[in-house]
Design a protein around this nucleic acid. Structure first.
Lengths: 217, 217
DNA sequence: TATATAAATTAGACATGGCTAATTTATATA
DNA sequence: TATATAAATTAGCCATGTCTAATTTATATA
């Protein structure tokens, strides 16, 4: 089938394609997979031969339908395993990703479907990213930022925009999880920071940067 | 760390060491991992350098303490994942192994321990093989054969000695699982076959070969 | 527009793990 | 014991995926 390496390239191309607008260049891919540009050229040839991507200088790299489907499958696996690790094994938000990075490549026909069923058909992973359905459908992304919530209103955390470890650990420290209720108590016009209540009791002030990295409903 | 390939060699050596008595030769390993003998020689050199095995013509290949520990870890992973796949994802007995073959190589400090806890500290995998504890301890193997049960007695399936797909599928067909009750109704002296009752109602005759492949308590 | 800089590509090398063919070493058996 | 056969080992080659060092092609900028 396809090697682990090939799959990681496909994922990288998919990820780059999400940040729409820019053409996907060999250099961008090289950066994304932390590899030398020369290696990327080789892989582009290989994946092109397999009809998983197309490439020309004008349009850059694009996933073919076949390649897109494959990438989605892997992402589906990844996100389902993340849910498993968090909910069933009790891993914290910030470690889940690296383990799922390995688990996503495990293959067996029914595995993703069975896992999905076992987990109760979750729609979002612990980072709030939508989990592709087996038919390739993607649940719509929730996109209200915490910073857009009016003073006095309460909302619920649905996703994170920033998935860096520092951020996730900060959230952990604040006991903020998917589903956590947050009430906006005050907005400081001066620097965009906001005063919030997390859960029942805890009150704190967070920066504008923070408020723009949390997605809520 | 250690590559997937190296890990599979270690497992193979461990497996061969179980079938005690015989010296572990390069050829035996070649057969076990389905690879050319020349390749085995290369790997023996590599693993020897890493102090995971020792090798000389007189004693054959032996796992060092370090190698043994590693092999046990992998087997622990394998068997825990098998339990997961069977009990949580509802896979049948005969497919569980091939998926676990991939899952066993996933690494993360606490993964096996968390999985073990999640599964309720199972002692045996779906094939009845003991699951190594995190300290390397192995629960004792149950070793009464169905063929050794007296006429009139009832016993409970605890493991299989034969893990071939044909056998496992035959068991599936007979609705025999770990935990299934079997009553020995009669023994045919002529060819060693026995007449048994599986569960509440179903009665059938099975061969001596069959009766010597099922472990019970 | 000339030229410096950045991006893309080619060429050649390395490590891993596997293979075939040839050779050496053991083991049996006539 | 001579010899056939099997096992172990060596040598050399292949594919995958990576790298560095050119070289070519684009893109900017003085």
């Amino acid at each position: 089938m396809h090697s682990l390496t090939e799959e990681n390239y496909l994922k990288a191309v998919y990820r780059l394609a999400q940040k729409a607008g820019t053409k996907i260049t060999p250099t961008a891919i090289a950066e994304e997979v932390s590899v030398n540009a020369a290696s990327v050229i080789d892989m582009i040839k290989k994946l092109s031969e397999k009809k998983l991507i197309s490439y020309d200088k004008v349009n850059g790299v694009k996933l073919t339908d076949k390649g897109n489907k494959l990438a989605l499958d892997i992402i589906r696996n990844h996100r389902l395993w993340e849910v498993f690790l968090l909910e069933k094994l009790g891993y914290s938000w910030d470690v889940v990703h690296e383990i799922a990075e390995q688990l996503e490549h495990i293959k067996h026909d029914e595995l993703a479907d069975r896992l999905e069923k076992f987990l109760g058909f979750p729609e979002y992973d612990p980072h709030g990213d939508p989990i592709p359905k087996s038919n390739g459908e993607l649940p719509a992304l929730v996109n209200t930022l915490l910073s857009e919530i009016e003073v006095g209103k309460t909302c619920r955390v649905s996703a994170v925009k920033d998935t860096s470890t520092v951020f996730l650990q900060y959230l952990l420290q604040l006991s903020v999880n998917i589903g956590t209720k947050i009430k906006v108590l005050d907005k400081i016009a001066y620097d965009g920071s906001i005063f919030i209540q997390i859960g029942k009791d805890f009150k704190t002030t967070v920066s504008q940067k923070f408020a723009e990295s949390l997605l809520v409903t």
